[in-house]
């Protein structure tokens, strides 16, 4: 059994056990969660410490997972964390929005065609194929091996990569490494905006 299969298996088992423990009907649990005040749910919640993913300061977080629903109900600064002592900036303080509790999170690929004024739902396969195709075509066409002085530069000046302010530190690193490997020199993200 490969690790991934094992993980999948244990997830299924875990979910099964959780369902048995709670009874199959999940509606009362949701009702429970709605009725009980957040602060009371917080007191009985499982607390897990984590680190804010955004910048290199590395502020500490406490994630509170509801004991009955198994969902994260709150994320706030960890007062015992040596770096941040509980504080968080606007990005870290909004960390809870990255959980599934945020109804505005996109769950499907949205595509706006050139000159179109509307978004269309697309599959991941379609989107990744299209991105890869366009990038390869552009790179094959415009890749610069040597500059005017004859020096090897291996760069691509007609493509830029714009990241998102919701990328974490490690994602930024991976994307930068990947973009440079293609020869991109214009790499930025909008965290400063």
């Amino acid at each position: 059994m490969r690790r991934r299969q094992f993980l999948k298996m244990s997830c299924v088992l875990g979910a099964g056990v959780a369902l048995c423990g709670l009874g199959v009907d999940l509606v009362p649990i949701e009702a429970w969660a709605e009725e009980i005040k957040k602060i009371d749910r917080l007191k009985s919640a499982r607390q897990t410490t984590s680190v804010c993913c955004y910048c290199s300061v590395g502020c500490g977080l406490i994630c509170a997972t509801d004991e009955k629903t198994g969902k994260i109900i709150n994320i706030e600064g960890d007062p015992e964390h040596p770096v941040s002592e509980g504080s968080l900036c606007a990005k870290g303080a909004g960390m809870f929005q990255t959980t599934e509790a945020n109804e505005h999170r996109l769950t499907k690929v949205l595509y706006r065609a050139p000159n179109s004024d509307r978004w269309e739902e697309k599959s991941w396969d379609w989107a990744i194929d299209r991105i890869a195709r366009l990038m390869k075509e552009e790179r094959d066409k415009s890749f610069i091996t040597r500059n005017a002085a004859g020096q090897v530069v291996n760069r691509l000046e007609t493509l830029a990569h714009m990241g998102s302010s919701n990328l974490d530190n490690e994602e930024c690193w991976s994307i930068t490494a990947w973009a440079r490997s293609l020869g991109l020199v214009y790499i930025d993200h909008q965290a400063r905006v």
């Binding site: 957040k38 709150n74 968080l88 606007a90 929005q97």
Partner: peptide, 13 residues
């Protein structure tokens, strides 16, 4: 930085 403003929104839902 407005961390307080976001934290207020976050806690109070």
């Amino acid at each position: 930085c407005r961390g307080c403003q976001v934290a207020c929104k976050q806690w109070n839902g």
